[in-house]
Each structure stands twice: as structure tokens, then as C-alpha cells.
Design a protein around this nucleic acid. Structure first.
Length: 508
RNA sequence: GGUCCGUUCGUCUAGGGGUUAGGACGCUAGAUUUUCAUUCUAGUAACACGGGUUCGAUUCCCGUACGGACUACCA
């Protein structure tokens, strides 16, 4: 770090939809930047053209945007360290590969992919694993084994080559990770990684280090899958002469399957019925659709809150955190070391917490837009607000509201058989007709007023409340559910209430 | 196979040499709501195992087991 400014980056590959684990990595980077008054960059690592998927980059940007993760600098917004797409930075990398060759820390290798595959197969047949390293490189087709003239001739002849890192022999590397603390690697167990491919593109390792250096990244916060390549990256900083500017590293634990073994995959979501992606994604090739949290009705705040608690916790008993609060509370020290199994149930619970705190008006508007409009129902917004307010603490999602309030918009055409069997028996029909008479005489149809009058009547008749209220509810709702009866009929209005009683008596 | 990382209730986790090992989700029960749900209250349930170190280890060390990542001209 040339100065102490915190600069972090999220560096996904545009190879498909962004997985929720990726979103969490982005989130932690973002929170870290906010916490320290730093900058959050988005860099697109598209050095592998063969895996490029159209639309993936837009998806990433849209997903982050939906989550409220704002990008200070990067592919979609620009900035002074651009371009932020590695494919657009292509001319930049060769120089560094050559610098490494000049210093003797890297070399040309002419082995073709096929040759290497063949060797790997031979090793495998003997139950051994082939690694391109100090033990094998002298017998392979590279500038370490060949004479200078031969190498020169091959290059001039245009023979394709890659540039490999010359891994030092038997050096013990003591590395520091912000989360895992002290980690030791011996270079003898490492291999000569390809830094520069024959297509003229750098590999992840080179591009990553070069770009982090050039973009003045202060902290590399990424998934645990990168921990094994941390020694290579550290070595690269050293050999390139950038040790003083080397960022600090933090490797995040993985998100695991809810049940069984292994890391969370798309299949788990399909099988268990929850999304693993933030947004709906349609595969451009196969047209396969993957569900998304947004389309499944999750609030971005809830999704983010849930994600933040996967591997991190504030050390207090507070669980509901706004993005502001997360930015304030976040610290790498409180990120755990072990992988977390994902719990879709808890995610629903988070959603519910946010749903309940929203105003009736807001919920009403969402419900109108997302559910009523879909069904072609037009309703007075005041009524929708009141209806939603009555039942909002019964659901986890806006979409579940319909089951709770449908009878406000459509009179029941049939009646729940189980409830009917229990509630509609004996003199139910007669009682309902009597009730209808009582109700029809009431001019002030407010909940409070109807309640007093009906209760007086029931008390005078000396029968159980259930004898009246249960069939009454069945007639109004069509089932044994719903809010306070008298609130329901106030909203339904007198005419509708009376006609529903008639319909129930005719039908049941 | 090799290298590295990890291991507290079913799950997410707090804690940390002496605690009734705390919270949350889930589940169960009771209360309330003369419906259903909510809500409230209670209950359920954990330091992977074996050796050390120590007066004392769930906590520190070492092993074992188990889990995970990596081991491509992919990121």
C-alpha cells in the first residue's frame, strides 16, 4: 500500500449467474470498505474467453445493485484505474511476465496441452500425480531445459508457448491471513503455475496480482478456495518487487449444503426448493431457469442481512441489521474460520422480520403491484392497506398475503370441508338467518358496533359464542381462518355480509 | 494420493483455563386469540475422539477421526 487508504475489490468471472456465495464475498468487501471509509471496486476477470457467458456481467452488476452494494469504481461505473475488465487490459500483462523471465523467476514452456495431458495420464496409470515443478521441469520442453539458441529459434518460429513461474525449492513461507492468522507453506509442495497463456492472455494468478497492484488494492478479501494459491501470489509480489505494496489477505469460509456434504450448489437449491442465486437467471444456451431471491419475493435487506450472518456475527445478540448498521459493525476479526451450512428456514425468518416492520401502506402497495395486478383485481388502495395491515404478521412473503386475504376480494364459492363439518352443524343455518336479521337492522356497521350488538344477542340467547362465530366465519371466509370477525364484516360492508350468509345457507 | 484449512445444540453461532456453556432458527408443550395464524411463556438439544500441559481443560499443545478447499494454458 503506497498510502493507507482502504481499497478492496470484488473480482468475479462472467461465467454465469453470480452465486450467493459470491454475493457474500462482494458484501464483505463492500462492508469492509464502508467501515474504513475506503473504496469498493468491481473488476471483471474475463481472461478465459472460452468460458465467457453473455449477460453474466450485467447480471453481476444488477445483483449487486439489488442488494444495495454500490460500486465506487469498476467495470460498470469507470474510475481512474481502469479499464476494469481484464480482457481490455490485455496488452498490460505481457510486460510483467517478461520482467519475471528476465529476473529468472519465470520461464517459457513449449509443452502443448496434449503433451501434458499424455504425461498426466501416464502418471495416473501408475497412481501418481504429475506436477510441473523443479523435479520434472528439467525433462520437459521449456527454456530451462533447452539451450538458449533452441529457445530463441522456437520463439522466432512462432511456436506457441506459455510462461510458467519458477517455483523456488524448499522455501518455507510464513504467511498471514486476516482470518486464519499464521499459515505456513513449503514451496516444494507447490508447482510451476502458468502465468501467461499461449493465447496472449494472463492467467488468473498473474492478472490478479498485477491488477491488485496497479489498482492499489489494500486488502484482498476472497473465498477460501483461493487459500492454496496465496503463496504463489505472495511470491509474485516479492519477485515483481512489490512486497511493500502487497495487500493484506483474508480468506472467507465457504457456504455449505444445508444437508449432506460439500459446498452449496445450484442442485441443492433445486432439490430443497430455495434459490442459490440473487436474481432469476435464464441460461442463454439451454434456456434453463434458475430461481432468484428477488423473484421469489425476498427483500434485498433480508437477503443481505442473512448473508452477512453466514460466517460473520457482531458478538452481540442483535440479529437484524440494516446495511448502515452492518457497515458500522463489520470487522474481519469477527468472521469465523469454518464453513457454514446454509439454512433456508432462517432466511425466511429474516424476510418476515423485514416484512413486519414495513408500514401497512408499503405492504399494501407491494401487494397491489405484485399480486392483485397479476390477478387483474382492482381495489381501493385504502382497503388494501387495511387488509394487509390486519394480516401482515401472519406471513413471510408478500405473495403469501393472498391466501390470507383473498376472501376480501372474492366471495367464497366453496367451503373448506373440514371446517364446515365442525362449524356448520345443528341449527347453524337457522342461527345464521337470525344473525342476518340482526345485522340487517344495524345502520352503524363499524366493527366495534356490530360486535357489541351481536355479542348481546348471543349472550341473550344463552348459547356458546362458537355456535355463532364459527359458522359465521365460514360463511364470510370460506374457511376457519382470518382476522377478527367484526373487522372483516366492517370491511366487507353490510350488503356483502348479508349476501354471503345467504349463499352459505343455500350451499351448505 | 499430496498440500493447506477447519470441528460448540439438528442448523447459524457466543464464549473461553474454574460458566447452571448464552442467544437465534427449527421442533415440542402451555397461555392468549371462542377460527387460523401471530404473540407470549416454557421445554428440547452441543464443546468429535484419544493423549498430554495444569490444582483444574470445552478453552492451550500433539495425534486420530471426520468435514472442506486446492491439486488445468478455469477462475
Amino acid at each position: 500500500m503506497s498510502d493507507n487508504k482502504v481499497r478492496v475489490r470484488f473480482a468475479p468471472s462472467p461465467t454465469g449467474p453470480l452465486h450467493m456465495g459470491g454475493v457474500r464475498t462482494a458484501l464483505f468487501n463492500y462492508l469492509f470498505a464502508r467501515k474504513h471509509g475506503g473504496e469498493f471496486l468491481l473488476r471483471i476477470e474475463d481472461t478465459d474467453q472460452t468460458r465467457y457467458v453473455p449477460g453474466a456481467e450485467d447480471y453481476i452488476a444488477e445483483a449487486l445493485n439489488w442488494c444495495g452494494i454500490t460500486i465506487d469504481e469498476g467495470a460498470t461505473v469507470g474510475g481512474e484505474y481502469g479499464p476494469y475488465r481484464q480482457s481490455e487490459r490485455k496488452p498490460l500483462y505481457r510486460e510483467y511476465a517478461e520482467k519475471l523471465i528476465a529476473s529468472g523467476d519465470a520461464y517459457y514452456a513449449f509443452d502443448t496441452a496434449e503433451e501434458l495431458d499424455a504425461i498426466r495420464n501416464e502418471y495416473e496409470a501408475e497412481k501418481k500425480t504429475f506436477t510441473y515443478n523443479p523435479d520434472t521441469r528439467d525433462n520437459l520442453n521449456n527454456s530451462l531445459a533447452l539451450s538458449a539458441d533452441e529457445v530463441q529459434a522456437k520463439i522466432e518460429a512462432g511456436t506457441p508457448y506459455v510462461v510458467r513461474f519458477k517455483m523456488p525449492v524448499n522455501e518455507e513461507l510464513h504467511l498471514d491471513d486476516e482470518i486464519r492468522k499464521h499459515v505456513i507453506f513449503n514451496t516444494s509442495a507447490l508447482d510451476d503455475k502458468v502465468l501467461f497463456k499461449s493465447d496472449g492472455m494472463p492467467t488468473y494468478h498473474l492478472a490478479n496480482v498485477v491488477d491488485d497492484y496497479l489498482m492499489k488494492i489494500s486488502h484482498v478479501i476472497r473465498g477460501e478456495e483461493w487459500l492454496p494459491s496465496m503463496p504463489l501470489h505472495v511470491l509474485l509480489y516479492k519477485k515483481l518487487g512489490w512486497e511493500a505494496e502487497m495487500p493484506k489477505f483474508a480468506h472467507l469460509p465457504l457456504i455449505l449444503k444445508p444437508v449432506g456434504k460439500g459446498k452449496l450448489s445450484k442442485r441443492d437449491g433445486d432439490k430443497l426448493g430455495f434459490p442459490v442465486f440473487p436474481l432469476l437467471w435464464t441460461d442463454p444456451k439451454t434456456q434453463d431457469i434458475s430461481s432468484g431471491y428477488r423473484e421469489d419475493g425476498y427483500f434485498p435487506e433480508a437477503f443481505v442481512n442473512m448473508l452477512a450472518f453466514l460466517g460473520w456475527n457482531p458478538g452481540t445478540e442483535q440479529e437484524i441489521f440494516s446495511m448502515e448498521e452492518l457497515s458500522e459493525a463489520f470487522s474481519l476479526d469477527r468472521v469465523g474460520k469454518s464453513g457454514s451450512k446454509f439454512d433456508p428456514e432462517k432466511t425466511k425468518w429474516f424476510n418476515r422480520q423485514y416484512l413486519v416492520t414495513k408500514s401497512d401502506e408499503e405492504i399494501g402497495q407491494l401487494f397491489s403491484k405484485e399480486v392483485l395486478a397479476e390477478k387483474g383485481i382492482e381495489a381501493d388502495s385504502d382497503k388494501v392497506t387495511r387488509v394487509c395491515g390486519m394480516v401482515k404478521d401472519r406471513v413471510d412473503f408478500i405473495s403469501e398475503l393472498w391466501d390470507q386475504v383473498n376472501f376480501f376480494f372474492e366471495a367464497p364459492l366453496e367451503f373448506d370441508a373440514k371446517t364446515a363439518k365442525k362449524a356448520w352443524k345443528g341449527e347453524a343455518a337457522e342461527l345464521m338467518q337470525e344473525l342476518k336479521t340482526i345485522l340487517s337492522d344495524i345502520s352503524d356497521f363499524s366493527s366495534a358496533n356490530t360486535e357489541i350488538i351481536v355479542k348481546e344477542w348471543i349472550t341473550a340467547k344463552e348459547i356458546g359464542f362458537g355456535k355463532v362465530m364459527n359458522p359465521f366465519r365460514l360463511a364470510m371466509v370460506g374457511a376457519g381462518k382470518g382476522p377478527h370477525m367484526f373487522d372483516i364484516i366492517e370491511l366487507l360492508g353490510k350488503d356483502e355480509t348479508l349476501s354471503r350468509i345467504d349463499f352459505a345457507c343455500e350451499t351448505l
